[in-house]
Structure formats: C-alpha cells, structure tokens
Amino acid sequence: MSGTAPAAATQGSDLWARVFATLYDPLLWWGERAGMGARRRQVLGRARGRTIELGSGTGLNLPHYPGDVEELILTEPEPAMRARLDRRVRTTQRNAKVLDASADQLPFTEESVDTVVSTLVLCTVDRPDAVLREVERVLRPGGSLLFLEHIRSKSPRLARWQDRLEVPWRRFAEGCRCNRATLELIRASGLEVDEVQEETWQGMMVPIVRPLIIGTATKPGGRHS
C-alpha cells in the first residue's frame, strides 16, 4: 500500500480539517455551558508542576488550569487546530507553550513530567496503547494522568448505535472513535487508576458521545509532590 495519499484526497482531508477546526467551538458551545466547562475545571484543578496536555485542540481547557502550574505545554499536531490554539493562548495571555507534537511521540525525556492531561483525546488516536506508553514514559514516578474522555456505553442499545455510527462519526469528527473502551485501555497500561467517575455529557447533541469518564491515574514508584 502506498504511503502517499492521492493529492485530491489529501487536499479534501486538509480542507475538512480546517472546516472542522472552525466548527469545533460552536459545536461544543452548549455542552460547555451545560456542564463540560465545570468538568474541565474539576479535572484540571489537579494539575501540578510541569504539565503537558495531549491534543489541546482549540484550547478549551486553557482557562481552567490553576494559576500555580509551574510549566504548561500544550501539544497539538493538527495545523488548523494549532493555529486557533495559538490565538487563544495570546488572547488569554496565559503563560503556556504551544508545541507541534503527536501524543504517541512526545518530545520529552523519560520521567520529566509531573502531570499529563488528556481530554477527549484517547478516542481520536490510532494507537491508544502507544500513547499511554508515552504517557507512562514521560511521567515521573508518582506523576498523574488526568483524563476526561468519552467511552463505549454500558447501555447495550446505545453501544449498538455507537458501533453502527462509528465509521461516519469518525470521518466527521476527525478520527474520533465513539465506541472505544478507553477506561479498560488506561487500566491495562501500567498506570494505576486512583479514581474514576462515570458521567453524561449534558448538552451534547450527539448521544453516541455522551458517556464520559473523569479520573486520575498515577505512575507507580513514587509520591507526586
């Protein structure tokens, strides 16, 4: 199989990526007001020390970080999203660095990070196991993965709809797998899940992405300061 996509397909993909980046905040607007913003604050309030965010998108997490985070690095590999992220960082005047980096190839040395943040990211990556290995690699012993992710539903009926709509939703939502069993992947990664809450994404118009998990996982071997 060729490693180079046809030019027309690549141009179409790039065009949709730019359109999706433009639509992203408006699509999530009501859900943010209906409770997702509060959930972001709940998760990000635990960020400490050197903090790396995976797939920061347009920067919706940015206002919710504590002011005493020592260092904040926002990674985003998609150019259209990253351009909006850059603008949000400048607008909020938050002391944060934006980095072009994918979640499965983080440009940080081993055990050099206190906190990794993943919000609505592990559903979009092709190899979540590789991403979680990277998280485990860069975290210091006792460091934390803070996560807010949507997951495969426990409702058999909704799970069937997630399976049926997985392909068209993935194409629309730039790689999002609505039926991914993300909590099980985190538990199998070598990180220790300290706590997890199951929630519903109120205000989200698309039911297949409403089931959520919110929680913390820790790298064994030390105590996070």
Rank of each mutant, 00 (worst) to 15 (best):
A7W: 05
G175I: 12
F172Q: 04
S153H: 08
L27H: 00
A47S: 11
T115F: 02
V69W: 14
T216H: 15
D126W: 06
T182S: 06
I214S: 13
E32S: 01
A188H: 10
V69G: 14
D100C: 07
A96I: 06
A181Y: 12
L148V: 04
L15H: 15
D25K: 04
S118L: 10
L85Y: 14
L148K: 01
E76I: 04
E149K: 07
A101N: 02
L185D: 03
T58H: 08
D25L: 10
E149N: 05
E149P: 06
C176G: 00
E53N: 06
T58G: 05
R170D: 01
L183I: 00
D194R: 15
T200V: 05
R82V: 07
S2K: 10
P156R: 08
E195C: 03
E70G: 05
Q197Y: 06
T119C: 15
P26N: 05
T200E: 13
L28H: 12
R210Y: 13
R39K: 13
A38I: 01
Q11C: 05
R46C: 03
G190D: 12
M1P: 06
P220H: 08
R82Y: 06
V206F: 14
L15E: 14
V125K: 07
Y24A: 05
P207A: 08
R160I: 00
Q197P: 00
E166M: 07
F108E: 05
I151V: 15
L44Y: 06
V117W: 02
F172R: 03
S144C: 08
W161P: 03
L139M: 04
V206W: 11
L54P: 12
E192A: 11
L191R: 13
P128G: 12
Y24F: 15
L185P: 03
K97E: 14
L106K: 07
E184T: 05
L62R: 09
E70F: 09
L158V: 06
G31C: 11
K97P: 00
C176H: 01
G203P: 13
I208E: 10
L158Y: 02
L44D: 01
L212M: 12
L44Q: 04
C176P: 00
R160T: 03
W29I: 00
A188F: 10
M81F: 11
A188T: 02
H150Q: 07
W161E: 09
E184C: 11
Q42F: 11
V196S: 08
G203K: 04
S112L: 14
R18E: 15
E53Y: 09
V206L: 15
A7Y: 03
R210M: 09
I214D: 01
E71W: 00
E136S: 14
T216S: 11
R33S: 05
F147E: 06
E134N: 08
G59N: 14
T218D: 02
T200M: 08
A83D: 14
R33N: 04
S112W: 14
H150C: 08
E78T: 02
D114C: 01
W16M: 03
T4N: 11
D86R: 07
L85G: 10
F108Q: 04
A103T: 08
H224Q: 14
V121E: 07
A9W: 13
R160P: 01
L183Q: 01
A38Q: 10
V135Q: 06
D104G: 09
R84H: 12
K219E: 08
V209W: 02
T92Y: 15
F147G: 06
P220N: 08
R18T: 12
A173D: 13
S225F: 03
L72H: 08
D86W: 02
W30D: 05
S56V: 04
T92R: 13
V206E: 06
T115L: 01
